[in-house]
């Protein structure tokens, strides 16, 4: 095990981790504002991946160019999901809401299974095997592009929350639900928007990650769990935490697969999740748990 291999693994883990982070951002936004644990997270992501796959097959569209379309469609799905379904169960205890989303997750993943079949399918890009070399350091072109796209979308999201009035209104809802209602914000609409924005993040991440992995329906539960790991490690509801958690998990997965075995890398993430849940349940950057 030489240093170059380790550094290469570090860099590639960091880049992949940024895409994980973007996806986890979607989970974090939804949880941070609506206080709903979106158990259908990975399923929405796989939906985005399949959409990018179809766009590539039908029109030869690069998955990176499919990001706006994937994000827009997932935004609509997320908005509708909150407006027509999730909103109606807000009076139920947390675990019932969780189970509702689990039911939706099963429907989505088995729908994908019925339509697309169980086999892994990917896109063949002409630059798929290209890479940049900086000294001994080798960076895959696709991985770098994916990371840049993920950072671009994440920055757009952060800017939206920081500077736009709608973004500020959504933050107001998250900070003080009653106060937001008192000052006349349309909380129901803002919640639906938030779910839509979260889902759009997930859709964008789905399109981007198709550059790196082949898609099949059973990825969905794995991505749900991965996003939970990322968000819990980074801190539920903290947006920078999600990105940081993503990079951390990306690096630890990559290192685990170099040092141990590739198939052990997820076990490593779950072990990390258990440790963080026990020692710092609010996550690395999270505020003290509610």
């Amino acid at each position: 095990m030489d240093t170059v291999t380790i550094i290469n693994a570090l860099v590639s883990g960091l880049l992949t981790g940024l895409v994980y982070g973007l996806s986890a951002l979607g989970l974090s936004v939804i949880f941070g504002v609506i206080r709903i644990v979106n158990f259908a997270h990975g399923e929405l992501m796989v939906l985005g991946m399949f959409m990018a796959l179809l766009l590539f097959r039908w029109f030869g569209l690069d998955p990176l160019m499919a990001v706006p379309i994937g994000a827009a469609v997932l935004f609509a799905i997320g908005y509708a999901l909150q407006h027509f379904v999730v909103r109606r169960v807000s009076y139920l205890p947390d675990h019932m809401q969780f189970l509702l989303l689990a039911g939706i997750a099963i429907m989505l993943v088995s729908g994908c299974l019925v339509i697309f079949g169980p086999d892994a399918q990917g896109v063949q890009l002409d630059y798929a095997l290209d890479s940049f070399a900086i000294g001994n350091l080798i960076i895959d072109k696709v991985r770098l592009y994916a990371a840049i796209a993920a950072v671009a979308v994440a920055s757009a999201l952060l800017a939206f929350f920081k500077y736009s009035s709608t973004g500020r209104a959504i933050r107001a809802c998250a900070d003080n639900y009653l106060g937001a209602k008192v000052v006349g914000l349309n909380v129901d609409r803002l919640y639906a928007l938030t779910f839509g924005i979260g889902a759009a993040c997930i859709g964008a991440a789905g399109c981007i990650i198709l550059l790196l992995v082949q898609v099949h329906p059973y990825l969905a539960p794995a991505y749900t769990l991965l996003a939970f790991v990322v968000v819990i490690v980074g801190g539920m509801g903290s947006l920078f935490g999600a990105l940081l958690g993503g990079m951390l998990i990306g690096v630890s997965e990559e290192l685990a697969s170099v040092v141990l075995q590739p198939s052990m890398k997820t076990a490593f993430s779950f072990a990390l999740l258990i440790v963080v849940l026990l020692l710092r349940p609010q996550g690395l950057l999270g505020r003290v748990a509610r």
Binding site: V89, I104, M107, V109, S110, L113, V114
Partner: peptide, 25 residues
């Protein structure tokens, strides 16, 4: 012919859970 029968059954189960939580929690 290539539709996965298992997938259809699972879709039904998912729908059943979602409807129960929505309508008869």
């Amino acid at each position: 012919k290539n539709v996965k029968t298992d997938g259809v059954k699972l879709m039904f189960w998912g729908l059943a859970v979602a409807l129960i939580v929505l309508l008869k929690p």
